[in-house]
Design a protein around this nucleic acid. Structure first.
Lengths: 221, 221
DNA sequence: GGATGTGAACGACTTCACAGCG
DNA sequence: CGCTGTGAAGTCGTTCACATCC
């Protein structure tokens, strides 16, 4: 009987949905700005206004976190930041490897936003022998053969793939074999992965196509 | 009264929704591969299997295009490609400017996928005087002051923004003032634009956060 | 048989509306 | 009074199922 109660409890505390999680990341950006500015509390209306959403939606999203929130006042900024980071699973360090050291990789490595959010890059890899030994941003480019040992040794769970489309599937297979659990793929290729491994694609051509589509839609109404 | 009929007609031919448009871009990638391979027809099942979707969804998406499709056979590859490109509004050239010539910009310029899809970059701009005159991929970096003339002269409608977050809003304002209609923004900043101008954000930290979230979700069930 | 095209059922997400609280 | 939290209603998108056609 106590069992039944427990199950009802667990069913009640819903996790953030995909759609909601994407917005929570955005809330986090705003909140970090406001914290830097020294603001103590925010209301759902503040966030909604900034991002062009409805206040009800913001409250619903935050509601999934089981977070605090004072009626008549709003949310305490640092507390809400902590709650979102916990809800998204980024309240810890995620070790990450990067495969394919081209311009895009250099741009990613330079961008400090990753580290600030707890993503640490623990290895650079490239199939091109000419690039081996190259030092980029404090890390040395290693051959693909070193991948399994580094992933295992550093307990890396995520990977950034910035390789040409032709190489993408092979690299992905190698990453999976090394034990990586999630891949952020920038190659314009359709990858097949075991269902245990999560994949997020960032295809720049597709983003441009979506933009063109939206602009074209805007023309008509 | 004929007015009413017309309205019903227009309400009937639905345009692809946002969600559907994102998938159509993916279909396009597969189809182009298959065309290169010389395949004449595809079925909704083929596409669905490749991308891990349901065949019904693929048919619904294609249905928005008012495209052909032969029962018992499938869709003719070249015809479907044309229909998708038309539906997405990319069956023409989109002239595009790029602001912020860093590593990310170089990666984008090198990536031939844009040009193949009809996106032509007609101008490079940077606020850094040291970069002025630099030639990258056949284009010369120009000062921000030249932006309005170039946008107007080339009739550019889209812009790629690869600038630091601090500069993002100012650059966006300048782009809007120049007459650009859509911005693909890579800066991790929340931009405010007039509603006439479309915005697509690609925030790499957010993508990584979403990946971490999905990996974390996968751990539990 | 093998696919398409599509209403209808279903499910997920969003907005509404308001009770409750500081 | 202002703002949160949340059922209820509504909207949007996906899946099902089947009539239809080659």
């Amino acid at each position: 009987m106590s069992r039944t109660d427990k199950e009802i409890d667990e069913a009640t505390d819903a996790k953030p949905s995909r759609a909601s999680a994407a917005r929570l990341s955005l809330y986090l950006r705003c909140l970090e700005n406001w914290r830097r500015a020294g603001q103590a509390t925010v209301s759902s209306g503040n966030i909604a206004e900034t991002l062009g959403l409805s206040d009800a939606q913001v409250r619903k999203d935050i509601g999934y976190l089981g977070s605090p929130g004072q009626p008549g006042v709003g949310y305490k900024v640092p507390e809400l930041i902590r709650a979102i980071r916990e809800g998204l699973g980024i309240n810890r360090e995620w070790r990450t490897v990067l495969v394919g050291v081209g311009n895009l990789a250099r741009a990613l490595l330079r961008y400090q936003g990753f580290r600030e959010q707890g993503f640490e890059i623990v290895g650079l890899f490239d199939a091109d022998p000419q690039k081996l030994g190259l030092r980029v941003d404090g890390l040395t480019v290693q051959p693909m053969s070193a991948l399994p040992a580094v992933v295992a040794g550093a307990d890396a769970e995520l990977a950034l793939m910035t390789v040409p489309a032709e190489a993408a599937q092979d690299v992905a297979d190698a990453l999976v074999a090394s034990g990586v659990r999630g891949i952020l793929n920038f190659a314009p290729a359709v990858l097949r992965l075991p269902s245990k491994v999560r994949l997020v694609n960032v295809d720049l051509a597709i983003q441009l196509e979506q933009l063109a589509f939206q602009v074209q839609l805007g023309n008509i109404p």
